[in-house]
Design a protein around this nucleic acid. Structure first.
Lengths: 224, 224
DNA sequence: GCAAAAGTGTTGGATATACACCCATGT
DNA sequence: ACATGGGTGTATATCCAACACTTTTGC
Protein backbone atom coordinates (compact mmCIF):
# COMPACT_ATOMS: atom_id res chain seq x y z
CA UNK A 1 0.00 0.00 0.00
CA UNK A 2 2.99 2.32 0.22
CA UNK A 3 3.20 4.09 -3.07
CA UNK A 4 6.95 4.32 -3.04
CA UNK A 5 7.23 0.57 -3.24
CA UNK A 6 5.13 0.38 -6.32
CA UNK A 7 6.74 2.88 -8.62
CA UNK A 8 6.43 1.47 -12.03
CA UNK A 9 4.79 3.61 -14.63
CA UNK A 10 6.55 5.66 -17.20
CA UNK A 11 4.35 8.59 -17.91
CA UNK A 12 4.56 10.42 -21.18
CA UNK A 13 2.66 12.97 -23.18
CA UNK A 14 1.93 12.80 -26.89
CA UNK A 15 0.74 15.87 -28.69
CA UNK A 16 -1.35 15.97 -31.82
CA UNK A 17 -0.32 19.35 -33.21
CA UNK A 18 -2.83 20.35 -35.84
CA UNK A 19 -2.82 23.20 -38.32
CA UNK A 20 -4.91 23.85 -41.38
CA UNK A 21 -2.69 24.36 -44.41
CA UNK A 22 -4.07 24.86 -47.89
CA UNK A 23 -7.54 23.87 -46.83
CA UNK A 24 -6.43 20.55 -45.40
CA UNK A 25 -5.81 19.54 -41.80
CA UNK A 26 -2.16 18.75 -41.20
CA UNK A 27 -0.42 17.10 -38.33
CA UNK A 28 3.14 17.57 -37.14
CA UNK A 29 5.05 14.27 -37.21
CA UNK A 30 8.56 13.25 -36.37
CA UNK A 31 10.42 10.26 -37.79
CA UNK A 32 11.14 7.39 -35.42
CA UNK A 33 13.31 4.41 -36.05
CA UNK A 34 13.62 1.91 -33.21
CA UNK A 35 14.25 -1.48 -34.78
CA UNK A 36 13.10 -4.12 -34.66
CA UNK A 37 9.64 -2.97 -33.71
CA UNK A 38 9.46 0.45 -35.27
CA UNK A 39 11.15 0.99 -38.59
CA UNK A 40 11.06 4.28 -40.46
CA UNK A 41 7.78 5.28 -38.96
CA UNK A 42 6.28 8.62 -38.07
CA UNK A 43 5.11 9.55 -34.62
CA UNK A 44 3.58 12.42 -32.73
CA UNK A 45 5.98 14.67 -30.86
CA UNK A 46 6.00 14.07 -27.13
CA UNK A 47 8.10 12.69 -24.37
CA UNK A 48 8.32 11.83 -20.74
CA UNK A 49 6.75 13.72 -17.90
CA UNK A 50 9.27 14.65 -15.26
CA UNK A 51 8.69 14.07 -11.57
CA UNK A 52 8.52 17.80 -10.95
CA UNK A 53 6.15 18.83 -13.69
CA UNK A 54 2.52 18.31 -14.55
CA UNK A 55 1.42 16.77 -17.81
CA UNK A 56 0.54 20.24 -19.06
CA UNK A 57 4.03 21.44 -18.17
CA UNK A 58 5.48 18.52 -20.07
CA UNK A 59 3.43 19.38 -23.14
CA UNK A 60 4.66 22.96 -23.08
CA UNK A 61 8.23 21.84 -22.56
CA UNK A 62 8.28 19.21 -25.28
CA UNK A 63 6.56 21.52 -27.75
CA UNK A 64 9.25 24.10 -27.06
CA UNK A 65 12.23 21.74 -26.98
CA UNK A 66 11.34 19.38 -29.76
CA UNK A 67 9.21 21.52 -32.01
CA UNK A 68 10.25 25.08 -31.28
CA UNK A 69 6.63 25.99 -30.71
CA UNK A 70 5.64 28.36 -27.93
CA UNK A 71 2.39 29.76 -26.71
CA UNK A 72 0.12 27.59 -28.75
CA UNK A 73 -3.21 26.39 -27.50
CA UNK A 74 -3.45 22.90 -26.08
CA UNK A 75 -6.00 20.77 -24.30
CA UNK A 76 -6.02 17.29 -22.87
CA UNK A 77 -7.63 14.55 -24.93
CA UNK A 78 -7.38 11.26 -23.05
CA UNK A 79 -4.94 8.86 -21.50
CA UNK A 80 -3.82 5.76 -23.34
CA UNK A 81 -2.68 2.90 -21.19
CA UNK A 82 -2.70 -0.26 -23.30
CA UNK A 83 0.02 -2.49 -21.91
CA UNK A 84 1.97 -3.03 -25.11
CA UNK A 85 1.37 0.31 -26.76
CA UNK A 86 5.11 0.98 -26.61
CA UNK A 87 7.38 -1.92 -27.53
CA UNK A 88 10.14 -0.60 -25.26
CA UNK A 89 8.15 -1.09 -22.12
CA UNK A 90 5.24 0.10 -20.15
CA UNK A 91 4.55 3.69 -21.08
CA UNK A 92 1.28 5.35 -20.28
CA UNK A 93 0.63 8.43 -22.32
CA UNK A 94 -1.57 11.44 -21.77
CA UNK A 95 -2.58 12.69 -25.21
CA UNK A 96 -3.07 16.35 -26.01
CA UNK A 97 -4.43 18.35 -28.88
CA UNK A 98 -2.50 21.48 -29.84
CA UNK A 99 -3.40 24.01 -32.50
CA UNK A 100 -1.25 26.26 -34.64
CA UNK A 101 -2.68 29.15 -36.67
CA UNK A 102 -2.17 28.77 -40.39
CA UNK A 103 0.12 31.78 -40.91
CA UNK A 104 2.39 30.59 -38.11
CA UNK A 105 2.38 27.06 -39.50
CA UNK A 106 3.41 28.41 -42.89
CA UNK A 107 6.33 30.46 -41.67
CA UNK A 108 7.38 27.79 -39.20
CA UNK A 109 10.57 25.87 -39.91
CA UNK A 110 10.23 22.58 -38.08
CA UNK A 111 13.47 21.33 -36.54
CA UNK A 112 14.84 17.81 -36.35
CA UNK A 113 13.07 16.08 -39.17
CA UNK A 114 9.65 17.23 -38.06
CA UNK A 115 7.23 17.84 -40.88
CA UNK A 116 3.61 18.72 -41.52
CA UNK A 117 1.68 15.85 -43.03
CA UNK A 118 -1.80 16.07 -44.44
CA UNK A 119 -3.81 13.98 -42.02
CA UNK A 120 -5.71 12.27 -44.80
CA UNK A 121 -2.45 10.98 -46.25
CA UNK A 122 -0.54 10.30 -43.07
CA UNK A 123 -0.89 6.51 -43.19
CA UNK A 124 0.06 4.19 -40.39
CA UNK A 125 1.84 5.87 -37.49
CA UNK A 126 4.01 4.39 -34.76
CA UNK A 127 2.56 3.22 -31.43
CA UNK A 128 -1.15 3.94 -31.05
CA UNK A 129 -0.75 7.37 -32.57
CA UNK A 130 -3.38 6.86 -35.24
CA UNK A 131 -5.86 6.50 -32.43
CA UNK A 132 -4.65 9.72 -30.85
CA UNK A 133 -4.91 11.60 -34.12
CA UNK A 134 -8.43 10.28 -34.60
CA UNK A 135 -9.37 11.44 -31.12
CA UNK A 136 -7.80 14.84 -31.82
CA UNK A 137 -9.74 15.32 -35.04
CA UNK A 138 -12.94 14.22 -33.41
CA UNK A 139 -12.43 16.65 -30.55
CA UNK A 140 -11.55 19.45 -32.92
CA UNK A 141 -14.66 18.80 -34.99
CA UNK A 142 -16.88 18.77 -31.92
CA UNK A 143 -15.31 21.92 -30.51
CA UNK A 144 -15.52 23.84 -33.77
CA UNK A 145 -19.26 23.35 -33.61
CA UNK A 146 -19.73 24.21 -29.97
CA UNK A 147 -16.97 26.63 -29.04
CA UNK A 148 -14.84 29.42 -30.40
CA UNK A 149 -11.78 27.19 -30.56
CA UNK A 150 -11.29 28.16 -34.19
CA UNK A 151 -9.55 31.29 -32.95
CA UNK A 152 -6.48 29.16 -32.38
CA UNK A 153 -6.38 28.03 -35.98
CA UNK A 154 -6.59 31.56 -37.32
CA UNK A 155 -4.41 34.63 -37.40
CA UNK A 156 -5.51 37.46 -35.11
CA UNK A 157 -7.36 38.97 -38.04
CA UNK A 158 -8.90 36.98 -40.84
CA UNK A 159 -11.61 37.09 -43.45
CA UNK A 160 -14.82 35.21 -42.94
CA UNK A 161 -14.06 33.22 -46.07
CA UNK A 162 -10.82 32.06 -44.46
CA UNK A 163 -12.69 31.03 -41.36
CA UNK A 164 -15.30 29.22 -43.38
CA UNK A 165 -12.62 27.30 -45.24
CA UNK A 166 -11.16 26.17 -41.91
CA UNK A 167 -14.55 24.93 -40.81
CA UNK A 168 -15.14 23.17 -44.10
CA UNK A 169 -11.80 21.46 -44.16
CA UNK A 170 -12.15 20.12 -40.64
CA UNK A 171 -15.81 19.16 -40.86
CA UNK A 172 -15.36 17.75 -44.34
CA UNK A 173 -18.48 19.26 -45.78
CA UNK A 174 -19.38 22.50 -47.52
CA UNK A 175 -21.15 25.20 -45.53
CA UNK A 176 -23.53 27.83 -46.80
CA UNK A 177 -21.76 31.17 -46.91
CA UNK A 178 -24.72 33.31 -45.93
CA UNK A 179 -25.88 31.08 -43.11
CA UNK A 180 -22.35 30.75 -41.80
CA UNK A 181 -21.92 34.50 -41.56
CA UNK A 182 -25.37 35.01 -40.15
CA UNK A 183 -24.74 32.62 -37.27
CA UNK A 184 -21.35 34.02 -36.40
CA UNK A 185 -22.65 37.56 -36.35
CA UNK A 186 -25.86 36.69 -34.50
CA UNK A 187 -23.87 34.92 -31.78
CA UNK A 188 -21.42 37.83 -31.70
CA UNK A 189 -18.41 35.54 -31.91
CA UNK A 190 -16.60 37.62 -34.53
CA UNK A 191 -16.50 41.36 -35.01
CA UNK A 192 -15.40 43.42 -37.95
CA UNK A 193 -12.19 45.36 -37.55
CA UNK A 194 -13.12 47.72 -40.37
CA UNK A 195 -9.86 46.87 -42.09
CA UNK A 196 -9.68 45.31 -45.51
CA UNK A 197 -7.35 42.75 -46.95
CA UNK A 198 -6.47 42.43 -50.60
CA UNK A 199 -5.81 38.87 -51.58
CA UNK A 200 -4.12 37.89 -54.83
CA UNK A 201 -7.25 38.28 -56.85
CA UNK A 202 -10.84 39.33 -56.52
CA UNK A 203 -12.63 41.77 -54.31
CA UNK A 204 -10.84 42.65 -51.05
CA UNK A 205 -12.25 41.02 -47.95
CA UNK A 206 -13.14 42.58 -44.66
CA UNK A 207 -11.01 41.51 -41.72
CA UNK A 208 -12.60 40.16 -38.57
CA UNK A 209 -11.37 39.15 -35.15
CA UNK A 210 -12.87 36.93 -32.48
CA UNK A 211 -14.94 38.87 -29.98
CA UNK A 212 -13.98 37.41 -26.61
CA UNK A 213 -10.48 36.60 -25.56
CA UNK A 214 -10.97 33.00 -24.53
CA UNK A 215 -12.50 29.88 -25.98
CA UNK A 216 -16.18 30.20 -25.20
CA UNK A 217 -18.69 27.41 -25.05
CA UNK A 218 -21.35 28.68 -27.39
CA UNK A 219 -23.22 26.74 -30.03
CA UNK A 220 -21.94 27.90 -33.39
CA UNK A 221 -23.10 25.49 -36.00
CA UNK A 222 -25.64 22.80 -36.36
CA UNK A 223 -26.32 22.03 -39.98
CA UNK A 224 -25.24 23.77 -43.16
CA UNK B 1 16.46 8.93 -22.87
CA UNK B 2 16.10 5.32 -21.82
CA UNK B 3 12.72 5.01 -20.26
CA UNK B 4 13.79 2.39 -17.76
CA UNK B 5 16.09 4.87 -16.10
CA UNK B 6 13.32 7.32 -15.60
CA UNK B 7 10.66 5.32 -13.88
CA UNK B 8 9.05 7.67 -11.49
CA UNK B 9 5.36 8.07 -11.76
CA UNK B 10 2.85 6.40 -9.57
CA UNK B 11 -0.22 5.93 -11.64
CA UNK B 12 -3.60 5.58 -10.05
CA UNK B 13 -7.24 5.63 -10.99
CA UNK B 14 -9.98 7.44 -9.13
CA UNK B 15 -13.57 6.60 -9.85
CA UNK B 16 -16.55 8.88 -9.41
CA UNK B 17 -19.29 6.31 -8.94
CA UNK B 18 -22.61 8.04 -9.39
CA UNK B 19 -26.14 6.85 -8.79
CA UNK B 20 -29.41 8.71 -8.57
CA UNK B 21 -31.12 7.97 -5.28
CA UNK B 22 -34.36 9.65 -4.25
CA UNK B 23 -34.13 12.16 -7.05
CA UNK B 24 -30.69 13.34 -6.04
CA UNK B 25 -27.30 12.47 -7.53
CA UNK B 26 -25.18 10.55 -5.06
CA UNK B 27 -21.53 9.67 -5.07
CA UNK B 28 -19.81 6.72 -3.45
CA UNK B 29 -17.17 7.88 -0.97
CA UNK B 30 -14.77 6.13 1.35
CA UNK B 31 -13.28 7.56 4.53
CA UNK B 32 -9.58 8.35 4.51
CA UNK B 33 -7.44 9.35 7.41
CA UNK B 34 -3.78 9.97 6.69
CA UNK B 35 -2.54 12.49 9.21
CA UNK B 36 -1.21 15.04 9.21
CA UNK B 37 -2.41 16.05 5.77
CA UNK B 38 -5.69 14.26 5.51
CA UNK B 39 -7.83 13.94 8.59
CA UNK B 40 -11.23 12.30 8.62
CA UNK B 41 -11.88 13.12 5.04
CA UNK B 42 -13.85 11.41 2.32
CA UNK B 43 -12.37 10.32 -0.97
CA UNK B 44 -13.33 8.61 -4.19
CA UNK B 45 -12.63 4.91 -4.41
CA UNK B 46 -9.61 4.08 -6.52
CA UNK B 47 -6.10 2.81 -6.31
CA UNK B 48 -2.92 2.10 -8.13
CA UNK B 49 -2.61 0.80 -11.65
CA UNK B 50 -0.49 -2.32 -11.81
CA UNK B 51 2.28 -2.76 -14.33
CA UNK B 52 0.35 -5.50 -16.08
CA UNK B 53 -3.03 -3.86 -16.39
CA UNK B 54 -4.54 -0.93 -18.24
CA UNK B 55 -6.22 1.93 -16.47
CA UNK B 56 -9.57 0.43 -17.45
CA UNK B 57 -8.53 -2.89 -15.95
CA UNK B 58 -7.56 -1.10 -12.76
CA UNK B 59 -10.95 0.59 -12.58
CA UNK B 60 -12.75 -2.73 -12.93
CA UNK B 61 -10.48 -4.34 -10.36
CA UNK B 62 -10.76 -1.60 -7.76
CA UNK B 63 -14.51 -1.35 -8.19
CA UNK B 64 -14.74 -5.08 -7.56
CA UNK B 65 -12.21 -5.29 -4.74
CA UNK B 66 -13.01 -2.12 -2.85
CA UNK B 67 -16.66 -1.57 -3.67
CA UNK B 68 -18.01 -4.98 -4.55
CA UNK B 69 -19.36 -3.56 -7.78
CA UNK B 70 -19.21 -5.55 -10.99
CA UNK B 71 -20.31 -4.91 -14.51
CA UNK B 72 -21.14 -1.27 -14.14
CA UNK B 73 -20.62 1.25 -16.88
CA UNK B 74 -17.50 3.39 -16.79
CA UNK B 75 -15.77 5.89 -19.00
CA UNK B 76 -12.59 7.89 -18.76
CA UNK B 77 -12.89 11.51 -17.70
CA UNK B 78 -9.43 13.05 -17.62
CA UNK B 79 -6.02 12.73 -16.06
CA UNK B 80 -5.02 14.83 -13.09
CA UNK B 81 -1.33 15.43 -12.67
CA UNK B 82 -0.86 18.37 -10.32
CA UNK B 83 2.42 17.79 -8.55
CA UNK B 84 1.15 18.02 -4.99
CA UNK B 85 -2.29 16.58 -5.49
CA UNK B 86 -1.37 13.72 -3.14
CA UNK B 87 0.56 14.66 0.01
CA UNK B 88 2.24 11.25 0.11
CA UNK B 89 4.12 11.82 -3.11
CA UNK B 90 3.79 12.13 -6.80
CA UNK B 91 0.66 10.31 -7.91
CA UNK B 92 -0.90 10.91 -11.27
CA UNK B 93 -4.48 9.82 -11.46
CA UNK B 94 -6.70 8.89 -14.35
CA UNK B 95 -10.23 9.76 -13.33
CA UNK B 96 -13.24 7.76 -14.40
CA UNK B 97 -16.98 8.14 -14.23
CA UNK B 98 -18.97 5.04 -13.30
CA UNK B 99 -22.73 4.71 -13.10
CA UNK B 100 -24.92 2.48 -10.98
CA UNK B 101 -28.64 2.00 -11.70
CA UNK B 102 -30.87 3.19 -8.88
CA UNK B 103 -32.36 -0.19 -7.91
CA UNK B 104 -28.90 -1.70 -7.68
CA UNK B 105 -27.67 1.27 -5.66
CA UNK B 106 -30.56 0.80 -3.24
CA UNK B 107 -30.01 -2.89 -2.61
CA UNK B 108 -26.26 -2.46 -2.55
CA UNK B 109 -24.48 -2.89 0.79
CA UNK B 110 -21.27 -0.94 0.50
CA UNK B 111 -18.31 -2.60 2.25
CA UNK B 112 -15.52 -1.02 4.24
CA UNK B 113 -17.04 2.24 5.34
CA UNK B 114 -18.09 3.20 1.85
CA UNK B 115 -21.27 5.23 1.69
CA UNK B 116 -23.46 7.07 -0.74
CA UNK B 117 -23.37 10.81 -0.23
CA UNK B 118 -25.68 13.30 -1.88
CA UNK B 119 -23.32 15.23 -4.14
CA UNK B 120 -24.84 18.54 -3.17
CA UNK B 121 -23.99 17.91 0.48
CA UNK B 122 -20.68 16.14 0.04
CA UNK B 123 -18.52 19.06 1.13
CA UNK B 124 -14.78 19.18 0.81
CA UNK B 125 -13.19 15.91 -0.29
CA UNK B 126 -9.62 14.71 0.04
CA UNK B 127 -7.01 15.33 -2.68
CA UNK B 128 -8.43 17.01 -5.79
CA UNK B 129 -11.50 14.84 -5.68
CA UNK B 130 -13.95 17.72 -5.70
CA UNK B 131 -12.56 18.59 -9.10
CA UNK B 132 -13.06 15.04 -10.29
CA UNK B 133 -16.63 14.96 -9.05
CA UNK B 134 -17.30 18.24 -10.80
CA UNK B 135 -15.89 16.85 -14.03
CA UNK B 136 -17.98 13.71 -13.61
CA UNK B 137 -21.20 15.63 -13.13
CA UNK B 138 -20.42 17.87 -16.05
CA UNK B 139 -19.76 14.89 -18.27
CA UNK B 140 -22.88 13.15 -17.09
CA UNK B 141 -24.97 16.22 -17.80
CA UNK B 142 -23.52 16.61 -21.27
CA UNK B 143 -23.97 12.95 -22.08
CA UNK B 144 -27.54 12.79 -20.84
CA UNK B 145 -28.35 15.43 -23.42
CA UNK B 146 -26.49 13.91 -26.30
CA UNK B 147 -26.41 10.17 -25.74
CA UNK B 148 -28.43 7.31 -24.30
CA UNK B 149 -26.12 7.04 -21.31
CA UNK B 150 -29.14 7.25 -19.00
CA UNK B 151 -29.62 3.54 -19.58
CA UNK B 152 -26.88 2.94 -17.06
CA UNK B 153 -28.69 4.89 -14.37
CA UNK B 154 -31.92 2.96 -14.85
CA UNK B 155 -33.18 -0.54 -14.27
CA UNK B 156 -33.70 -2.61 -17.42
CA UNK B 157 -37.33 -1.54 -17.38
CA UNK B 158 -38.57 1.75 -16.08
CA UNK B 159 -41.36 4.24 -16.42
CA UNK B 160 -40.90 7.42 -18.39
CA UNK B 161 -41.62 9.38 -15.23
CA UNK B 162 -38.71 7.63 -13.55
CA UNK B 163 -36.48 8.49 -16.47
CA UNK B 164 -37.62 12.08 -16.45
CA UNK B 165 -36.87 12.36 -12.75
CA UNK B 166 -33.33 11.16 -13.43
CA UNK B 167 -32.88 13.78 -16.10
CA UNK B 168 -34.30 16.49 -13.89
CA UNK B 169 -32.18 15.63 -10.91
CA UNK B 170 -28.96 15.62 -12.92
CA UNK B 171 -29.73 18.65 -15.04
CA UNK B 172 -31.13 20.51 -12.09
CA UNK B 173 -34.15 21.89 -13.87
CA UNK B 174 -37.69 20.74 -14.51
CA UNK B 175 -38.55 19.29 -17.89
CA UNK B 176 -41.86 19.34 -19.69
CA UNK B 177 -43.46 15.92 -19.50
CA UNK B 178 -45.05 15.96 -22.92
CA UNK B 179 -42.03 17.31 -24.74
CA UNK B 180 -39.78 14.87 -22.94
CA UNK B 181 -41.82 11.88 -24.03
CA UNK B 182 -42.27 13.21 -27.52
CA UNK B 183 -38.53 13.53 -28.07
CA UNK B 184 -37.67 10.13 -26.68
CA UNK B 185 -40.28 8.43 -28.80
CA UNK B 186 -39.50 10.42 -31.93
CA UNK B 187 -35.82 9.51 -31.64
CA UNK B 188 -36.76 5.91 -30.91
CA UNK B 189 -34.50 5.73 -27.90
CA UNK B 190 -37.05 4.00 -25.67
CA UNK B 191 -39.71 1.45 -26.53
CA UNK B 192 -42.71 0.30 -24.62
CA UNK B 193 -42.58 -3.21 -23.21
CA UNK B 194 -46.35 -3.35 -22.91
CA UNK B 195 -45.99 -4.18 -19.24
CA UNK B 196 -47.36 -2.05 -16.46
CA UNK B 197 -46.03 -1.20 -13.06
CA UNK B 198 -48.12 -0.28 -10.06
CA UNK B 199 -46.38 2.14 -7.77
CA UNK B 200 -47.51 2.86 -4.25
CA UNK B 201 -50.17 5.26 -5.32
CA UNK B 202 -51.74 6.68 -8.44
CA UNK B 203 -52.31 5.31 -11.89
CA UNK B 204 -49.98 2.48 -12.96
CA UNK B 205 -47.24 3.41 -15.38
CA UNK B 206 -46.19 1.72 -18.56
CA UNK B 207 -42.73 0.17 -18.51
CA UNK B 208 -40.19 1.07 -21.15
CA UNK B 209 -36.73 -0.13 -22.08
CA UNK B 210 -33.93 1.48 -24.07
CA UNK B 211 -34.07 0.56 -27.74
CA UNK B 212 -30.47 -0.13 -28.69
CA UNK B 213 -28.04 -2.08 -26.59
CA UNK B 214 -25.23 0.42 -26.39
CA UNK B 215 -24.80 4.06 -25.56
CA UNK B 216 -25.67 5.87 -28.75
CA UNK B 217 -24.65 9.35 -29.71
CA UNK B 218 -27.97 10.90 -30.54
CA UNK B 219 -29.26 14.32 -29.58
CA UNK B 220 -31.93 13.82 -26.97
CA UNK B 221 -32.66 17.12 -25.35
CA UNK B 222 -32.06 20.74 -25.96
CA UNK B 223 -34.38 22.88 -23.91
CA UNK B 224 -37.40 22.00 -21.82
C1' DG C 1 -65.15 10.77 -4.35
C1' DC C 2 -60.67 12.19 -3.53
C1' DA C 3 -55.77 12.15 -3.77
C1' DA C 4 -51.94 10.89 -6.55
C1' DA C 5 -49.44 10.05 -10.49
C1' DA C 6 -49.87 8.79 -15.66
C1' DG C 7 -50.90 9.94 -19.98
C1' DT C 8 -52.04 12.80 -24.14
C1' DG C 9 -52.14 17.40 -28.81
C1' DT C 10 -51.98 21.76 -30.46
C1' DT C 11 -50.22 26.15 -31.47
C1' DG C 12 -46.99 30.17 -32.02
C1' DG C 13 -42.38 31.41 -32.19
C1' DA C 14 -37.76 30.70 -33.19
C1' DT C 15 -34.31 28.57 -35.69
C1' DA C 16 -32.33 26.34 -39.65
C1' DT C 17 -32.11 25.70 -44.48
C1' DA C 18 -32.16 26.52 -49.22
C1' DC C 19 -31.25 29.51 -52.71
C1' DA C 20 -29.07 33.57 -56.72
C1' DC C 21 -27.40 37.77 -57.65
C1' DC C 22 -24.46 42.00 -57.43
C1' DC C 23 -19.90 44.08 -55.96
C1' DA C 24 -15.00 45.32 -55.89
C1' DT C 25 -10.75 44.42 -57.47
C1' DG C 26 -6.62 43.10 -60.77
C1' DT C 27 -5.36 41.95 -65.21
C1' DA D 1 -14.56 43.38 -70.16
C1' DC D 2 -13.69 39.44 -67.70
C1' DA D 3 -12.28 36.48 -64.16
C1' DT D 4 -12.04 35.90 -59.30
C1' DG D 5 -13.51 35.81 -54.86
C1' DG D 6 -16.46 38.87 -51.44
C1' DG D 7 -20.66 40.14 -49.80
C1' DT D 8 -25.84 40.30 -49.13
C1' DG D 9 -31.77 38.96 -48.08
C1' DT D 10 -35.86 36.29 -48.29
C1' DA D 11 -39.11 32.52 -48.14
C1' DT D 12 -39.97 27.95 -46.34
C1' DA D 13 -39.65 24.11 -43.40
C1' DT D 14 -38.43 22.29 -39.20
C1' DC D 15 -37.85 22.19 -34.52
C1' DC D 16 -38.70 23.80 -29.90
C1' DA D 17 -41.41 25.63 -26.02
C1' DA D 18 -45.45 26.60 -23.71
C1' DC D 19 -49.57 25.09 -22.17
C1' DA D 20 -54.29 22.03 -19.22
C1' DC D 21 -57.10 18.48 -18.91
C1' DT D 22 -58.52 13.49 -18.65
C1' DT D 23 -57.44 8.70 -17.00
C1' DT D 24 -56.46 5.10 -13.81
C1' DT D 25 -55.61 3.43 -9.65
C1' DG D 26 -55.74 2.95 -4.12
C1' DC D 27 -57.81 4.47 -0.17
Amino acid sequence: MKPRNLRFAILAVDVAVIAIINRAPHILLMPVHLPPDIVHAQALPGGLVRPDETAEDAVVRHLAEKCGLEGCYSEQLATFSAIDRDPRGRVVSVAYLALVPEPLARSYEPPGGLRWHAIAQAGKLAYDHNEIVAAALERLRANLQSTTIARHLMAAQFSLSDLQRVYESVLGRPLDKRNFRKKLMAADVVRSTGKMQQSAIGRPSELYRFAGSKVEIIGILSGS
